[in-house]
Protein backbone atom coordinates (compact mmCIF):
# COMPACT_ATOMS: atom_id res chain seq x y z
CA UNK A 1 0.00 0.00 0.00
CA UNK A 2 1.34 3.41 -0.81
CA UNK A 3 1.39 6.15 1.75
CA UNK A 4 0.09 8.85 -0.53
CA UNK A 5 -1.82 11.79 0.84
CA UNK A 6 -5.16 12.99 -0.33
CA UNK A 7 -5.03 16.69 -1.14
CA UNK A 8 -8.46 17.03 0.44
CA UNK A 9 -6.84 16.73 3.87
CA UNK A 10 -4.82 19.86 3.14
CA UNK A 11 -7.83 22.02 2.53
CA UNK A 12 -8.96 23.84 5.60
CA UNK A 13 -12.63 22.99 5.70
CA UNK A 14 -14.82 25.74 7.00
CA UNK A 15 -17.98 23.75 7.60
CA UNK A 16 -18.30 21.03 10.24
CA UNK A 17 -19.62 17.65 9.13
CA UNK A 18 -21.14 16.50 12.39
CA UNK A 19 -22.18 18.49 15.41
CA UNK A 20 -23.22 16.76 18.60
CA UNK A 21 -25.03 18.78 21.25
CA UNK A 22 -25.67 17.58 24.81
CA UNK A 23 -26.42 14.02 23.81
CA UNK A 24 -27.55 11.66 26.58
CA UNK A 25 -28.91 8.14 26.61
CA UNK A 26 -30.62 6.72 29.70
CA UNK A 27 -31.76 3.18 30.35
CA UNK A 28 -34.31 3.81 33.08
CA UNK A 29 -32.29 5.20 35.98
CA UNK A 30 -29.00 4.07 34.54
CA UNK A 31 -26.83 6.46 32.52
CA UNK A 32 -25.58 5.11 29.19
CA UNK A 33 -23.90 8.38 28.30
CA UNK A 34 -24.57 11.97 29.28
CA UNK A 35 -23.73 15.54 28.34
CA UNK A 36 -21.74 14.69 25.19
CA UNK A 37 -20.95 17.58 22.84
CA UNK A 38 -18.33 17.83 20.10
CA UNK A 39 -17.82 18.92 16.50
CA UNK A 40 -16.27 16.78 13.78
CA UNK A 41 -14.81 18.30 10.60
CA UNK A 42 -14.43 16.73 7.17
CA UNK A 43 -11.42 14.42 7.04
CA UNK A 44 -10.96 14.35 10.81
CA UNK A 45 -10.57 11.11 12.75
CA UNK A 46 -11.89 11.12 16.31
CA UNK A 47 -11.16 8.30 18.73
CA UNK A 48 -13.35 7.44 21.72
CA UNK A 49 -11.56 5.38 24.36
CA UNK A 50 -12.59 3.99 27.73
CA UNK A 51 -13.07 0.59 29.30
CA UNK A 52 -16.04 -1.72 28.80
CA UNK A 53 -19.21 -0.14 30.14
CA UNK A 54 -17.91 3.44 29.87
CA UNK A 55 -20.68 4.30 27.41
CA UNK A 56 -18.60 4.61 24.27
CA UNK A 57 -20.54 2.07 22.21
CA UNK A 58 -23.84 3.53 23.44
CA UNK A 59 -22.70 6.94 22.25
CA UNK A 60 -21.59 5.57 18.90
CA UNK A 61 -24.97 3.93 18.35
CA UNK A 62 -26.69 7.26 19.01
CA UNK A 63 -24.37 9.14 16.65
CA UNK A 64 -24.86 6.61 13.88
CA UNK A 65 -28.65 6.69 14.18
CA UNK A 66 -28.93 3.10 15.41
CA UNK A 67 -30.36 4.23 18.78
CA UNK A 68 -32.35 7.34 19.58
CA UNK A 69 -30.77 9.53 22.28
CA UNK A 70 -32.90 10.39 25.34
CA UNK A 71 -31.74 13.98 25.11
CA UNK A 72 -29.76 16.26 22.78
CA UNK A 73 -29.26 16.47 19.06
CA UNK A 74 -27.00 15.01 16.38
CA UNK A 75 -26.60 17.42 13.46
CA UNK A 76 -25.23 16.17 10.14
CA UNK A 77 -24.30 18.33 7.14
CA UNK A 78 -26.88 17.61 4.51
CA UNK A 79 -28.15 19.61 1.55
CA UNK A 80 -26.25 22.80 2.40
CA UNK A 81 -27.22 22.96 6.07
CA UNK A 82 -27.07 21.04 9.33
CA UNK A 83 -30.01 18.71 9.97
CA UNK A 84 -30.87 16.88 13.18
CA UNK A 85 -30.87 13.28 12.03
CA UNK A 86 -33.53 12.36 14.58
CA UNK A 87 -35.92 15.00 13.29
CA UNK A 88 -35.91 13.30 9.88
CA UNK A 89 -38.46 10.69 8.87
CA UNK A 90 -37.25 7.16 9.61
CA UNK A 91 -36.96 6.30 5.91
CA UNK A 92 -34.80 9.34 5.15
CA UNK A 93 -32.52 8.58 8.07
CA UNK A 94 -32.19 4.96 6.95
CA UNK A 95 -31.25 6.10 3.45
CA UNK A 96 -28.63 8.49 4.85
CA UNK A 97 -27.21 5.66 6.96
CA UNK A 98 -26.51 3.73 3.77
CA UNK A 99 -25.12 6.58 1.67
CA UNK A 100 -23.90 9.53 3.77
CA UNK A 101 -22.26 7.60 6.56
CA UNK A 102 -21.30 4.01 7.18
CA UNK A 103 -20.92 1.77 10.20
CA UNK A 104 -18.21 -0.85 10.67
CA UNK A 105 -19.41 -3.18 13.42
CA UNK A 106 -17.12 -5.01 15.80
CA UNK A 107 -18.62 -8.30 14.71
CA UNK A 108 -18.60 -8.57 10.90
CA UNK A 109 -21.76 -10.69 11.11
CA UNK A 110 -23.65 -7.57 12.20
CA UNK A 111 -22.56 -5.67 9.12
CA UNK A 112 -22.53 -8.36 6.44
CA UNK A 113 -25.21 -10.52 4.85
CA UNK A 114 -23.76 -13.93 5.48
CA UNK A 115 -25.84 -15.74 2.85
CA UNK A 116 -24.94 -13.33 0.03
CA UNK A 117 -21.68 -13.58 -1.95
CA UNK A 118 -18.76 -11.25 -1.21
CA UNK A 119 -19.37 -9.44 -4.49
CA UNK A 120 -23.06 -9.15 -3.65
CA UNK A 121 -22.31 -7.69 -0.22
CA UNK A 122 -20.28 -4.91 -1.79
CA UNK A 123 -22.45 -4.45 -4.91
CA UNK A 124 -25.66 -4.18 -2.89
CA UNK A 125 -24.53 -0.80 -1.55
CA UNK A 126 -24.02 0.51 -5.07
CA UNK A 127 -27.52 -0.65 -5.99
CA UNK A 128 -28.85 1.17 -2.90
CA UNK A 129 -27.20 4.24 -4.31
CA UNK A 130 -29.00 3.77 -7.61
CA UNK A 131 -26.37 2.04 -9.75
CA UNK A 132 -28.07 -0.41 -12.12
CA UNK A 133 -25.44 -1.63 -14.59
CA UNK A 134 -24.59 -5.16 -13.47
CA UNK A 135 -21.20 -5.30 -15.21
CA UNK A 136 -20.07 -1.99 -13.73
CA UNK A 137 -21.24 -3.00 -10.26
CA UNK A 138 -19.37 -6.28 -10.47
CA UNK A 139 -16.19 -4.56 -11.66
CA UNK A 140 -16.41 -2.00 -8.89
CA UNK A 141 -17.06 -4.72 -6.30
CA UNK A 142 -14.02 -6.61 -7.58
CA UNK A 143 -11.87 -3.48 -7.33
CA UNK A 144 -12.94 -2.95 -3.75
CA UNK A 145 -12.15 -6.55 -2.84
CA UNK A 146 -8.61 -5.95 -4.14
CA UNK A 147 -8.31 -2.71 -2.22
CA UNK A 148 -9.08 -4.54 1.02
CA UNK A 149 -6.71 -7.30 -0.08
CA UNK A 150 -9.23 -10.03 -0.78
CA UNK A 151 -8.39 -12.05 -3.90
CA UNK A 152 -10.83 -11.33 -6.73
CA UNK A 153 -11.26 -15.07 -7.26
CA UNK A 154 -13.25 -15.11 -3.99
CA UNK A 155 -15.90 -12.73 -5.33
CA UNK A 156 -18.60 -15.42 -5.51
CA UNK A 157 -17.81 -17.01 -2.14
CA UNK A 158 -20.04 -16.38 0.84
CA UNK A 159 -18.58 -14.52 3.87
CA UNK A 160 -19.04 -17.60 6.08
CA UNK A 161 -16.25 -19.22 4.04
CA UNK A 162 -13.93 -16.35 5.03
CA UNK A 163 -11.64 -16.04 8.05
CA UNK A 164 -12.49 -13.45 10.72
CA UNK A 165 -9.94 -10.99 9.35
CA UNK A 166 -11.24 -11.37 5.79
CA UNK A 167 -14.82 -10.89 6.97
CA UNK A 168 -13.79 -7.67 8.68
CA UNK A 169 -12.05 -6.42 5.52
CA UNK A 170 -15.11 -7.35 3.47
CA UNK A 171 -17.28 -5.36 5.86
CA UNK A 172 -15.00 -2.36 5.40
CA UNK A 173 -15.26 -2.66 1.60
CA UNK A 174 -19.05 -2.84 1.89
CA UNK A 175 -19.08 0.37 3.94
CA UNK A 176 -16.57 2.34 1.86
CA UNK A 177 -17.77 1.40 -1.64
CA UNK A 178 -20.58 3.95 -1.49
CA UNK A 179 -18.00 6.66 -0.61
CA UNK A 180 -19.55 7.91 2.64
CA UNK A 181 -18.31 11.18 4.11
CA UNK A 182 -18.21 9.71 7.60
CA UNK A 183 -17.54 6.23 8.95
CA UNK A 184 -18.31 4.97 12.45
CA UNK A 185 -16.20 2.07 13.68
CA UNK A 186 -16.85 0.06 16.82
CA UNK A 187 -13.69 -1.81 17.90
CA UNK A 188 -12.76 -2.52 14.26
CA UNK A 189 -9.85 -4.76 15.25
CA UNK A 190 -11.47 -6.46 18.25
CA UNK A 191 -11.30 -10.23 18.22
CA UNK A 192 -8.56 -10.40 15.56
CA UNK A 193 -5.10 -11.74 16.24
CA UNK A 194 -2.21 -9.30 16.29
CA UNK A 195 -0.77 -9.84 12.79
CA UNK A 196 -4.22 -9.55 11.21
CA UNK A 197 -4.85 -6.42 13.29
CA UNK A 198 -1.69 -4.77 11.97
CA UNK A 199 -2.75 -5.45 8.40
CA UNK A 200 -6.25 -4.13 8.98
CA UNK A 201 -4.99 -1.04 10.79
CA UNK A 202 -2.65 -0.11 7.99
CA UNK A 203 -5.46 -0.63 5.51
CA UNK A 204 -7.81 1.60 7.51
CA UNK A 205 -5.16 4.26 7.97
CA UNK A 206 -4.45 4.48 4.25
CA UNK A 207 -8.09 4.30 3.18
CA UNK A 208 -9.26 6.96 5.60
CA UNK A 209 -6.45 9.28 4.58
CA UNK A 210 -6.58 8.71 0.82
CA UNK A 211 -10.33 9.10 0.67
CA UNK A 212 -10.34 12.07 3.04
CA UNK A 213 -13.32 10.67 4.94
CA UNK A 214 -14.02 11.55 8.54
CA UNK A 215 -14.26 8.76 11.09
CA UNK A 216 -15.33 8.15 14.66
CA UNK A 217 -13.54 5.12 16.06
CA UNK A 218 -14.46 3.48 19.36
CA UNK A 219 -11.69 1.38 20.80
CA UNK A 220 -10.25 0.29 24.12
CA UNK A 221 -6.84 -0.15 22.47
CA UNK A 222 -4.71 2.96 22.93
CA UNK A 223 -2.18 1.85 20.29
CA UNK A 224 -5.01 1.69 17.75
CA UNK A 225 -6.12 5.15 18.82
CA UNK A 226 -2.61 6.54 18.41
CA UNK A 227 -2.16 5.08 14.97
CA UNK A 228 -5.51 6.08 13.51
CA UNK A 229 -6.91 9.13 15.27
CA UNK A 230 -6.23 12.89 15.28
CA UNK A 231 -8.26 13.65 18.39
CA UNK A 232 -9.26 11.61 21.38
CA UNK A 233 -12.17 11.63 23.86
CA UNK A 234 -11.76 9.61 27.05
CA UNK A 235 -14.99 8.27 28.56
CA UNK A 236 -15.71 6.98 32.03
CA UNK A 237 -19.10 6.14 33.54
CA UNK A 238 -20.92 7.69 30.59
CA UNK A 239 -19.09 11.01 30.68
CA UNK A 240 -16.18 12.52 28.76
CA UNK A 241 -13.42 13.08 31.34
CA UNK A 242 -10.70 14.37 29.02
CA UNK A 243 -10.25 15.28 25.37
CA UNK A 244 -7.68 16.81 23.05
CA UNK A 245 -5.09 15.94 20.43
CA UNK A 246 -4.44 12.22 20.57
CA UNK A 247 -0.73 12.49 21.33
CA UNK A 248 -1.43 15.12 24.03
CA UNK A 249 -3.98 13.00 25.82
CA UNK A 250 -1.83 9.86 25.68
CA UNK A 251 1.56 11.46 26.48
CA UNK A 252 0.45 14.07 29.03
CA UNK A 253 -2.81 12.82 30.53
CA UNK A 254 -4.29 15.13 33.16
CA UNK A 255 -7.31 13.26 34.49
CA UNK A 256 -6.70 10.50 37.04
CA UNK A 257 -8.58 7.97 34.93
CA UNK A 258 -6.63 8.80 31.75
CA UNK A 259 -3.36 8.55 33.67
CA UNK A 260 -4.42 5.11 34.82
CA UNK A 261 -5.35 4.05 31.27
CA UNK A 262 -2.13 5.41 29.76
CA UNK A 263 0.06 3.79 32.40
CA UNK A 264 -1.72 0.45 32.19
CA UNK A 265 -0.50 -0.34 28.68
CA UNK A 266 2.97 -1.61 27.95
CA UNK A 267 3.63 0.65 24.96
CA UNK A 268 1.08 2.69 23.09
Amino acid sequence: MSASHSPSRLVSELEPLLQVNQVAKYYGERIGCEDISFTLWPGEVLGIVGESGSGKSTLLRCLAGLDTPSHGEVLFRHGGGMVDIFSLPEATRRAMMRTEWGIVHQNPRDGLRMDVSAGGNVGERLMDRGDRHFGAIRTSAGDWLSRVEIDKSRIDDRPRQFSGGMQQRLQIARVLVSEPRLVFMDEPTGGLDVSVQARLLDLLRVLVRDLGIAAVIVTHDLAVARLLTDRLMVMKDGHVVEQGLTDQVLDDPHHAYTQLLASAVLAA
Binding site: A3, L10, D202
Partner: peptide
Protein backbone atom coordinates in the same frame (compact mmCIF):
# COMPACT_ATOMS: atom_id res chain seq x y z
CA UNK B 1 7.25 2.48 13.11
CA UNK B 2 3.99 2.03 11.27
CA UNK B 3 3.29 -1.60 10.40
CA UNK B 4 3.90 -2.53 6.76
CA UNK B 5 4.89 0.91 5.44
CA UNK B 6 8.17 0.92 3.46
CA UNK B 7 11.15 3.09 4.38
CA UNK B 8 10.83 5.12 1.19
CA UNK B 9 7.13 5.80 1.83
CA UNK B 10 7.85 6.84 5.43
CA UNK B 11 10.40 9.39 4.19
CA UNK B 12 8.12 10.65 1.39
CA UNK B 13 5.03 10.88 3.55
CA UNK B 14 5.41 14.45 4.97
CA UNK B 15 6.29 15.84 1.53
CA UNK B 16 3.23 14.26 -0.07
CA UNK B 17 1.17 15.73 2.77
CA UNK B 18 2.44 19.18 1.75
CA UNK B 19 1.60 18.64 -1.90
CA UNK B 20 5.04 17.79 -3.34
CA UNK B 21 4.54 15.69 -6.53
CA UNK B 22 5.19 11.97 -6.07
Amino acid sequence: VIPRVSTLDIVKDPMLGRGVPD
